[in-house]
Design a protein around this nucleic acid. Structure first.
Lengths: 107, 107
DNA sequence: TTTCAATACTTCGTTGAGCGATATATCGTC
DNA sequence: GACGATATATCGCTCAACGAAGTATTGAAA
């Protein structure tokens, strides 16, 4: 899973959100580092919906603008959690050079 | 940086290695999870060499088989370390849900 | 008043990484 | 003699990322 896709899922952990809201939330969560391009976002949402990791959770019109809400499925929560663990382990390969094989015990 | 590329660099932290050795080392480091496809490996090495993150460190013929050694540059070491920190922070967004903004203080 | 930034979704086209497949070659084992 | 491990080169496909352009509303600033 790529970083943009990961942050789309992570942004939805706080509850359903719409496209633009996800972009803003991902930027917050990453301290400004991850700025999802619109093409990336909507492409990722379509893919994730196809994979059953998110579902459309209704639409709403606010001040003349359409909002389409997306919600994490249970599969989606599992996937993003597994991905976080995977990244943590991968990071430790480099950051934990003094005891590089420590995490491998539980893997 | 993608996971395959990251593990190519990580495999070289122990010292210079050749293509096939990198594949095996990456598999070890990831507890068997990361199996670099040959096309991925040599493509990544070319790219990384072009970016100055690795350099060719001599060739050797062992039992009739050519070995081309690659070595991490200082830039490469920096890049893989930065990448590890980035992944750790990204992982914490999900795993550290009880105090999600904790790391943002130092970021 | 009109222009600009923010909000909000759609779609197109390009780029490039990942990767399977194929080719070539040696060596040891079964 | 066939197969698996070791070892590199290269082609071509697929798909994610992403910039860009299009459409549309609202509010603030100039």
């Amino acid at each position: 899973m790529s970083e943009p896709t990961y942050f789309v899922l992570a942004a939805l952990l706080d509850g359903p959100s719409h496209g633009y809201g996800i972009i803003k939330r991902a930027e917050e969560l990453s301290a400004g580092r991850v700025r999802l391009a619109v093409g990336t976002l909507y492409g990722a949402l379509d893919r994730l919906a196809g994979d059953g990791l998110v579902v459309v959770d209704g639409e709403e019109t606010v001040q003349g603008r359409l909002r389409r809400y997306y919600r994490l499925t249970e599969d989606g929560k599992l996937a993003v959690t597994r991905e976080a663990v995977r990244m943590e382990q991968a990071a430790r390969v480099v950051t934990g050079r003094t005891a590089p094989a420590a995490w491998a015990v539980w893997a």
